[in-house]
Amino acid sequence: MPISPIQSWSLILTMALVTAGIRFFPFWVFRKNTPKLVLYLGTVLPGAVMAMLVVYCLKDLDLLGSNHGLPQIISVGVVAVLHKWKHNTLLSILGGTLCNMILLQTIFAV
């Protein structure tokens, strides 16, 4: 261990408290009446946030690098097509993930 157990504990508890604090914050602040504006945000955020999470997952793609991020980009396409076609969540995830693994480990292997 690079640091002592006590130091480790203090860092772990810090991260746990801050993370829980962020998650609880809206519920504390708006525990009585929620302003209309916040309720409005609650209805439109899911769509916007899911797009943000997709971008977040792909943020480290190196478009100018050796494989131009192609394995992931192709796999996202596979997921979209599979899902539009069958609307089966597990099938789409399995198909896309296998596609990504095969591409990364064979055609685009470094």
Binding site: V44, L45, P46, G47, A48, M50, A51, L53, V54, C57, L58, P71, Q72, S75, V76, V79, A80, H83, K84, T89, S92, I93, G96, T97, N100, M101, L103, L104, Q105
Partner: peptide, 29 residues
Amino acid sequence: TQGIDFSMTALFVIIFIQQWETAKDHRPA
């Protein structure tokens, strides 16, 4: 296992598509 972590990306992509299909207003997305 290289590349298996893509399952998370796939999940978010699928939920994005599902939300897109049910949403009347696509502007938030």
